[in-house]
Write a protein that binds this DNA or RNA. Structure first.
Length: 478
RNA sequence: CGGGGCGUAGCGCAGCCCGGAAGCGCGCCUGCUUUGGGGGCAGGAUGUCGCAGGUUCAAAUCCUGCCGCCCCGACCA
């Protein structure tokens, strides 16, 4: 009974699987306005964990948090030509407030380069003011045509870093450094292997000189851009007159960068690891790392719950996020299924027989046998088990990725490959050719990986010489 | 913005074609029983049938208009 508590299998309909999982695991629900989502406590806790780790890394690399306003005068957006062209179609604009029509419409920020540029033009006057290294945690609004929870919502949460430097070299180093931070977050915390590299001209951020990206493979073989770091050159400096007087007495424009990582990363975690049972959360970010499911009858309730509570205390003292599920109204079997659906990495079962024997049962969300472990040894053992879980999850994702990327040099093979994963192919660099590939195959260039070897070849579609000196990854993307 | 679908109990849906007492499953509440992989029995509560008009003795059902959401595409973190 209660069969509809399960989720649609991935192989049957990956999209439906995703929708089922996020709702049934109580990560999110739809908001009343199209494209908005409510992050429920379990989903928000995941975001908070991710946020805490990323915030720490951002600060360790010398940045300070600040906060800029939600409303931006429309005229600001228009100062950088490419920027306004890129963002105008998806702006939400406030025209009325306080019961009156506004003299100048206000954009709800889609990103904050412009308002930050405006403020910096006031604050930056000397080479001694540089570099400026700032970050803000904020919500932004982009009125996308086709929203999907976490992946593309009308309003989303993110951090956006913004920096200003005296030289091009320094700004480019910063761009690359912060991409590295994102890659580290993905690998070491989310257990997701990512390619780091360049976006093509066609795929870059509106207003950037170039964009770097981390790109990951989802379990349906599609790509998800999970974080981007942009080198903005002097584009915004010139638009907003951000200048400084250098040591050589010359007045110069600053060089700026920006970089962002959003709640989309949660979508990446869901789709990179989840299976037909539901979520599988990386232990370093999981709201609950270990769940204890007590097994008792009415007459053995306290016999089991008392040591279970003691176990919970000891595990918590060992620095592990643990939860004791002592709800009377659900059977153990129900709880097993529910916590598997919600992706908790490790489960402990403890019943009267276990209490009698002085042990408990340990079971991993990644499968394998149930283990009997002495109650005294269990708390101390869990941190290393969680480490092991993280490594196994990463290795699993890496193996999956390797199975879903192929070098292809023939357009027919290319078309087949992008149906199941990533194609590593040569491209001529012509935006029209790139567009044609997208129209013919639905695949786009995802990334030109930094660590791909130098290699010469001809464009997989048109046969003209390769533009990038190496292969480019193509895939269908979210 | 194009194509498709759907709005009926908290959730998932049937009923609509062919007008005549608003239903089913799950969930929820109470009690008993059960609990080592989504238990069982009994009792119970819950509805402006998306909105507005129209036709009719009578509208969830037929007609007109509107609104909203979801899915698939083009666009994007």
């Amino acid at each position: 009974m209660a069969k509809e508590q399960g989720v649609t299998p991935q192989s049957q309909d990956f999209s439906q699987w995703y929708i089922d999982v996020i709702q049934k695991a109580e990560l999110v629900d739809y908001g009343p306005v199209r494209g908005t989502m409510v992050m429920r406590p379990y989903g928000y806790a995941l975001w908070e964990n991710l946020q805490r780790e990323l915030d720490r890394m951002i600060k360790e690399t010398g940045h300070e948090n600040a906060y800029f306003p939600l409303f931006i005068p429309m005229s600001f957006l228009q100062k950088e030509a490419e920027h306004v062209e890129g963002f105008a179609p998806e702006l939400a604009v406030v025209t009325h407030a306080g019961g009156e029509e506004l003299e100048e419409p206000l954009a709800v920020r889609p990103t904050s380069e412009t308002v930050i540029g405006y403020m910096w033009s006031k604050w930056i006057t000397s080479w001694r003011d540089l570099p400026v290294l700032m970050n803000q945690w904020a919500n932004v609004v982009r009125w996308e045509k086709r929203p999907r929870p976490f992946l593309r919502t009308t309003e989303f949460l993110w951090q956006e870093g913004h920096t200003a430097h005296a030289t091009r070299e320094e700004a480019e180093e910063e761009t690359r450094r912060m991409l590295g931070v994102y890659a580290k977050l993905a690998r070491d915390y989310a257990a997701i292997p990512v390619w780091e590299g360049m976006k093509t001209e066609k795929e870059k951020f509106a207003g950037a000189v170039y964009t770097t990206t981390i790109e990951a493979v989802m379990r349906d073989g599609k790509a998800l851009q999970s974080g981007t770091s942009h080198f903005l050159g002097q584009n915004f400096a010139k638009a907003f007159e951000i200048t400084f007087q250098d040591q050589d007495l010359e007045e110069k424009y600053v060089w700026t960068t920006s970089w962002g990582l959003s709640t989309r990363m949660i979508g990446a975690i869901i789709m990179a690891h989840g299976d037909d049972q539901g979520l599988i959360l990386p232990p370093k970010l999981a709201p609950i790392q270990v769940v204890i499911v007590p097994i008792y009858r009415k007459n053995t309730r306290e016999v089991v719950l008392e040591p279970a509570r003691e176990l919970e205390r000891e595990i918590r003292a060992a620095g592990v996020r643990v939860h004791l599920d002592d709800r009377d109204q659900y059977s153990p079997g129900y709880k097993f299924n529910e916590w598997e659906l919600r992706g908790v990495p490790l489960r402990i079962e403890i019943g009267p027989r276990d209490v009698e024997a002085g042990h408990a049962v340990l079971k991993s969300r990644l499968g394998g046998e149930k283990e009997f472990i002495g109650l005294r040894d269990l708390p101390g053992l869990l941190p290393e088990r969680l480490e092991g879980f993280h490594r196994a999850l990463y290795e699993r994702a890496l193996a999956f990725r390797e199975e879903h990327v192929e070098k292809v040099d023939d357009y027919d093979a290319f078309k087949e490959q992008v149906e199941r994963g990533f194609a590593a192919a040569f491209h001529c660099g012509d935006a029209a050719c790139e567009k044609a590939i997208q129209e013919e195959t639905k695949a786009t260039t995802r990334v030109i990986p930094f660590d791909f070897p130098e290699e010469e070849g001809v464009c997989v579609r048109c046969g003209k010489p390769s533009a990038y000196g190496k292969r480019v990854l193509f895939a269908k993307a979210y």
